[in-house]
């Protein structure tokens, strides 16, 4: 393979999917242990109105602006969930359900009613992602990876995601110990002087960041697959938290790479004349991995997948 086709067309989506998958799998580990997988789903939905609003207000689709909008929406939804829970006396799950469906619906409406649909954002991309659209036209082959001028033409999502993935994984690495203690035994953690509320809020923020990162790659709906499937699979394969996190990152990377390649080449290899959605394929591969682990794991739990 000389890379003249692979490098501009398949490599950038693959790397972007990989970075999004790593960003999600990291915080996903703590979400499933805290039985807050639903929070990941909520975050992946509420970022949509934030992204659309940021685009409409600024007229720019640059990653930092969309990110700021998404984080603002995540913060707003966290406040709304808390308000509904306290004022309405509903349980947290219901408060979350009300908030994230309402905010997601608002996002879809804003997309359709505004001009945003015609420019950089449209409903289909918001829902299913736009991995295939993130191509690198300046690349001519493997040599372009060393060509500074050509590298400048990389999709802007790629460096933005690299930054986000690095930030998320570094933060989790630094706060691993207090986060693990607070996740296992919150009362004890508080008695040790660990700021458990701040850590919980931090985890929500990281989840929101990861959801935004994944949004550009796989869209809202499939972000939950990236947040939950690799950690849930890893949880079935080990009883050590550190190993679980490392394994989940490996599985996430594998699903992203295998999913992108399979989407682009598997149908052609099978003699079909079309390709399938890369995000759909990544989610499928992730789900298959979880199913396989759930079936074959030596330490299957009676209650199966947690979260």
């Amino acid at each position: 393979m000389d890379g003249s086709e692979f490098v501009p067309l398949t490599l950038p989506p693959m790397v972007i999917a990989l970075l999004a998958a790593l960003s999600c799998a990291g915080p996903g580990n703590f979400l499933i242990l805290r039985r807050q997988a639903m929070l990941g789903d909520a975050m992946s939905h509420v970022v949509l109105p934030g992204i659309v609003a940021a685009f409409l207000l600024s007229g720019s689709a640059s990653p930092p602006i969309l990110l700021a909008g998404a984080l603002a929406a995540a913060a707003l939804s966290a406040a709304l969930i808390e308000a509904i829970r306290r004022l309405g006396g509903t349980d947290p799950g219901a408060a979350m359900g009300i908030t994230f469906t309402a905010m997601f619906a608002a996002g879809v409406l804003m997309l359709e009613l505004s001009g945003a649909a015609s420019v950089h954002l449209d409903v289909e991309h918001a829902l299913y992602g736009n991995l295939e659209g993130l191509i690198w036209l300046d690349a001519t082959g493997w040599a372009s990876l060393l060509d500074i001028a050509a590298l400048g033409g990389l999709p802007p999502e790629l460096p933005a995601l690299a930054l986000v993935a690095g930030l998320i994984l570094a933060t989790l690495r630094i706060f691993h110990r207090p986060l693990a203690i607070a996740t296992f035994d919150e009362g004890f953690a508080t008695s040790l002087g660990i700021p458990t509320r701040l850590l919980s809020a931090g985890l929500v923020a990281l989840t929101a960041l990861a959801a935004v990162a994944a949004f550009s790659a796989v869209g809202s709906i499939l972000t939950i697959a990236m947040l939950i499937c690799p950690p849930a699979t890893a949880r079935l394969l080990t009883d050590d938290l550190g190993r679980q996190i490392r394994l989940s990152l490996g599985l996430a990377a594998l699903a992203a790479v295998a999913g992108t390649v399979a989407a682009g080449y598997l149908p052609l290899f099978l003699g079909l004349s079309f390709t399938v959605s890369a995000s759909g394929m990544i989610a499928t591969v992730s789900g298959l991995g979880l199913a396989l682990a759930a079936t074959l794991s030596p330490r299957r739990h009676g209650h199966g997948q947690r979260g």
Binding site: L33, I174, F175, R177, P178, A180, I181, T183, F184, D185, G187, F188, L192, G193, I194, R235, T238, D239, D240, L241, Q244, H301, R306
Partner: peptide, 27 residues
């Protein structure tokens, strides 16, 4: 009963949590 004993940790890991103040967050 206030914690989830399904948490991925060994007995030693739980006891080590008691040394958190000595080692600190990054220790």
């Amino acid at each position: 009963a206030s914690v989830d004993w399904d948490f991925p940790a060994r007995v030693l890991d739980v006891v080590l949590m008691g040394l958190y103040r000595q080692t600190g967050a990054l220790g």
